[in-house]
Design a protein around this nucleic acid. Sequence first.
DNA 1: CTTTTTTAGGAAACCGCTTCCCTATTGATT
DNA 2: AATCAATAGGGAAGCGGTTTCCTAAAAAAG
Lengths: 338, 338
Amino acid sequence: MPTIDEIAKLARVSPTTVSKVLNNRPYVSQATRRRIEHVIAETGFVPSQWARLLSQRRSYILGLLIPYTSDQLFADPHLLEVMRGIEAAANRYEYNLLLSTARAPVEAASACTRLLRSDVIDGAVVVETQDLRAFAETLGDRPAPWVVLGYAPAGDVPAIHADDYGGARDAMHYLINQGHRRIGVVSSTPRPFALDERMRGLQDALQAVGLALDPRLVVLGDFSTVSGEHAGHTLLAHPNPPTAIFALNDRMAIGVVRAATARGMRVPEQLSVIGFDDIALATLLTPQLTTVRQPGYLLGETAAETLFALLDPQLTTPSAIIPTELIIRGSVQPPERG
Amino acid sequence: MPTIDEIAKLARVSPTTVSKVLNNRPYVSQATRRRIEHVIAETGFVPSQWARLLSQRRSYILGLLIPYTSDQLFADPHLLEVMRGIEAAANRYEYNLLLSTARAPVEAASACTRLLRSDVIDGAVVVETQDLRAFAETLGDRPAPWVVLGYAPAGDVPAIHADDYGGARDAMHYLINQGHRRIGVVSSTPRPFALDERMRGLQDALQAVGLALDPRLVVLGDFSTVSGEHAGHTLLAHPNPPTAIFALNDRMAIGVVRAATARGMRVPEQLSVIGFDDIALATLLTPQLTTVRQPGYLLGETAAETLFALLDPQLTTPSAIIPTELIIRGSVQPPERG
DNA sequence: CTTTTTTAGGAAACCGCTTCCCTATTGATT
DNA sequence: AATCAATAGGGAAGCGGTTTCCTAAAAAAG
């Protein structure tokens, strides 16, 4: 690989002049510029990023720090959708994406910390995790700017998340309006802030009509389809089973549907199911899943845009809440008269 | 962010000695080492990657060059599975993954070329693309080592791919054994090498029993579900429609099933459908899709491992062919007597 | 007790590019 | 014709580490 000095020598100019050409700066004559460009094309010279960045202090690399194991990441269609949004935005700014996942949940924080303290990336989108608060504190002096995708641990870092509260409230409201009174909930543990918000939203919807959540009808999963299936069985085995189940994400909702089917129950005739996220799979089921749409692409895009704004010191970047939308499809109907 | 000089000053030593400590080199006394380590911990110092790499010539960043638009990437479950494998392997070697997709198909090659010629990444896994041959030629002198995921354009770059030929041959063989004689094929355009191989495999299976592919029963899609749906309609509208359809990837197979259903046909009773890839969705359909499993995770993992071996100059790394497996589920059965 | 080897540590060059600042030439202004 | 501004280009000092080479002190060998 040639260096700028060799190019300079070949073009019979100084490295300074070559640098000017490389960076489109003025004060180079047409003739010289052309000569240098010709040599560059000839040799296939690509300036060293490292060296360039050492002096320029920009790597044009955006970190995407996902404190999960890669298995968890790739199993989550919603998160992938978010990633797609981030990718698109990064692309628009000619940034590359550096993906960092954790080998084990434990070491997630330290890997993120290292990256944010280092100068490899110009900034990062950090996906919310349990110990984000502790994480934020270990960051120290002057980390690269970052944005959290989820709920912020401290006040000073912008947080981008969907309107989990409103979405869950609307969904529950819809179930109530359809006539359901015994409603099961599949939540999860450990519970990120987003799920707290969803729980709060659905409880408020219940309270608004004088109902309350029966704690025996709340079962915990871990976001996966199989955990939803287990949860479904648990709920349906109840002596007085619910007529509707609200799973706090779509994958678990699919599990619930599967559990119901396995028990010979028909959805939505004998059991209404509602999910959260609106992943692509939701429309491929029969019946198609009624759910709350959380626009993953937009979330990712907004997070990245917020970060890019942050890279420009004079801009202030606010947190953002992305609206959700109730998508009514075929998995909910009024309960049968028993 | 502190620099090595400041650390040196604080620890009352020279930068050289600090560097020794940072890189675990000998010739530093216990006392001095401890003192320096203490200062480093105190200040939260993280050495600059850029600077370090300028002299060390390793970035510990692996490129994943996917010459598609990010939309195409994230729409392809098989490719995501491959990515998961690469991620896992990279993680094992403490490498980070730099994801580079193309904004437009056209500029894919140039972006890849730039990255491979630059020193940002230590090496790359390049997903096969149409113009890979031309691409390989523009690489010039001494690009970073790379591995192609798919079929190699030239002899000297290792290529990792599944046994597309054998998989397609086995699938077709199975259809024939089930008694099918009029078999439709949904291929694609532009056609990567992998699809050539699949076509070759299925044609050989037909020839082995004295049959030939009816060119009127070959329809082209573009890998997407909707294109499969179109293809399905086209094939089924044929005056003498096929009794089985072999879609050369699962997404198109799903489209075919959808088309059949829309026309009031039952799968597999009136139409057998077989796919290729075995994406997760294949088991969620009713009927579950019979398909050829292409182990995406293993493919990705193998590609990454091959690349890491390549990074070590004394090792030679061969290409690899990953076996496929026919997964028999519910979407194929013998044709009805007409 | 001298001589040789090993250990501990530092000075300075270097990695490849950018940038600040300086000089010489050309063109525009008066 | 003299003055001033703009243009073209280069020298050299960083950026933040690593590495080579050197010296002095301590340990081992004779």
